[in-house]
Simulated scan of single mutants.
Amino acid sequence: MSERDPMVHIRMSAELRESLQEKAREANRSMNAEIVLRLETSLSPYSPVPLLIAGSGDISSPEQELVGMWRSMDSEARHAFWLLARRLSGTNPPEI
């Protein structure tokens, strides 16, 4: 990130801020880096977040476990996982 990147000021609850601070601290990142990473991840074509936001009711325990695994992966692991899942499901992986 450069100093020329635009700055954005947002409001959030104290609880959300504390949660983000804790996650950033655990990952040894700044708050800014944590927020940017989470936003980039949620907008990635490989992210399960849009599916969860769209909501099709409750998700099962195995689905929750997969989401938890996904969230613990870095972007390279997520990409590999996505390609493997697409191959196993019989769909063609996206061209990247």
Score class of each variant (00 low, 15 high):
18 E>I: 04
53 I>A: 09
4 R>T: 10
94 P>A: 02
80 A>W: 04
31 M>L: 15
25 R>Y: 07
52 L>K: 00
26 E>M: 07
40 E>I: 08
5 D>C: 09
84 L>I: 09
9 H>V: 15
59 I>D: 01
6 P>Q: 14
22 E>F: 10
4 R>C: 06
14 A>E: 08
78 R>M: 03
42 S>T: 10
76 E>F: 07
32 N>I: 05
24 A>I: 05
84 L>R: 10
54 A>F: 11
26 E>V: 05
13 S>L: 11
59 I>W: 00
86 R>G: 00
18 E>N: 11
60 S>I: 03
18 E>W: 05
38 R>S: 13
79 H>C: 08
64 Q>P: 03
30 S>R: 09
76 E>D: 14
33 A>E: 03
8 V>I: 06
78 R>H: 02
76 E>Q: 13
74 D>T: 09
80 A>M: 05
69 M>D: 15
5 D>E: 14
42 S>H: 08
2 S>H: 03
1 M>I: 04
46 Y>K: 14
42 S>V: 02
47 S>M: 04
89 S>M: 14
90 G>W: 07
92 N>R: 11
79 H>Y: 14
23 K>H: 13
7 M>Q: 11
36 V>Q: 01
61 S>F: 11
46 Y>L: 15
45 P>F: 03
48 P>W: 08
87 R>W: 07
71 R>T: 02
95 E>R: 15
60 S>F: 02
57 G>P: 06
64 Q>C: 07
87 R>I: 13
45 P>Q: 03
21 Q>M: 11
49 V>H: 01
51 L>G: 13
37 L>T: 11
71 R>G: 07
19 S>D: 14
81 F>C: 02
4 R>G: 09
90 G>C: 12
10 I>S: 07
51 L>N: 04
82 W>F: 13
28 N>A: 05
46 Y>W: 11
66 L>M: 06
15 E>L: 08
66 L>K: 02
42 S>F: 07
32 N>M: 08
61 S>T: 10
76 E>Y: 06
60 S>T: 14
40 E>Q: 13
78 R>A: 04
25 R>F: 06
31 M>K: 05
86 R>V: 00
83 L>N: 04
86 R>S: 08
95 E>S: 15
30 S>F: 11
62 P>W: 10
26 E>T: 15
44 S>H: 10
20 L>W: 00
12 M>E: 00
44 S>G: 08
19 S>W: 06
64 Q>I: 10
40 E>L: 14
94 P>Q: 03
52 L>F: 01
20 L>I: 06
24 A>R: 03
64 Q>L: 14
46 Y>E: 14
24 A>H: 05
16 L>C: 12
68 G>F: 09
74 D>Y: 07
12 M>A: 03
7 M>D: 08
35 I>C: 02
